[in-house]
Design a protein around this nucleic acid. Structure first.
Lengths: 139, 139
DNA sequence: GCGTGATTACTCGGATACAAGATGTCCGAGTTTGAGCGG
DNA sequence: CCGCTCAAACTCGGACATCTTGTATCCGAGTAATCACGC
């Protein structure tokens, strides 16, 4: 079981958007260059993030993408579920009267992980990265 | 991101083996019938469980599979990792000096889930199922 | 009865086939900005 | 200087190609128990 590479791209792209201080939108090209990723593919992922309500798109010249909500509200879980979908990781394929003890255990494990991911915000990392840069500037 | 169906089969098959009270080995056919699953495919999964050291195989007539360790020692995590492998769920594909903050967060989330799965043993479910059967017999 | 060989009931491993999903590209359409041009 | 038009810079969505992975099957080989047969 593995998270798709798309999730990797999306998390890094979102981290860039959260770190962005200008209020002008950021274009796909700009993001794709920083991440060294195909712009067309990245735009597919950004479309999913738009649909999930995490970012807004601004078409036209000087357009691009921008956060929709406050930067402190965006958790890892938000981004991951936007890309991977929010279906359960485990679905019992047998028919034992609609309640499967195995299913319950694995689902609870999943909730443990999601609970953690929900509490970690991208803005934490953005702040951490910024403070590192500042520290390095004072060397 | 989803656990493969193979994990579903393997967990149910292991639960049957843990619940088995006879010390005679259980054949693939027998397991496959109870689970209504292709015997040939199931045998592939059992082979993985053998390689992981969870069960033993006994070739020849009246052969089959049997637990290798004590039934109380087998956790959900053991079975899942035997099937899915123990590689990390998330691998950052970028090159930021070998340490990626995003990677660290997701890996920690993974540890949360694995910690839970490691503490849940299949024998718990076997006991629960057995007590339910007994209770129903006394209706 | 008793060994010896054949048969049967199993697992094991590799090769193969197929479908679905992940990854990535291409192109046409819509939308906004801004520049250029004529009055 | 104003307004109109047009081109440029974007996003959006669908269609398509490719590659990997999960799922599943088949077959030959190895192994252990059991049965049959000859002595």
């Amino acid at each position: 079981m593995k998270y798709s590479q798309a999730t990797d791209y999306a998390l890094h792209a979102m981290l860039l958007l959260v770190s962005e201080e200008s209020d002008r939108p950021t274009s796909v090209q700009s993001l794709a260059e920083k991440l060294r990723v195909s712009p067309t593919y990245l735009s597919k992922l950004l479309a999913k993030l738009v649909k999930a309500g995490l970012i807004r798109s601004m078409p036209g010249a000087n357009g691009g993408y921008r956060l929709k909500r406050g930067r402190d509200e965006i958790s890892f879980l938000d981004v991951i579920q936007a890309i991977e979908g929010n279906a359960s990781m485990f679905e019992c394929s047998f028919e034992h009267g609609s309640e499967c003890l195995i299913q319950q255990v694995v689902s609870e494990a999943e909730r443990q992980m999601e609970g953690y991911l929900e509490n970690r915000k991208l803005a934490e990392l953005a702040a951490e990265l910024k403070s590192r840069q500042t520290a390095r500037r004072h060397d």
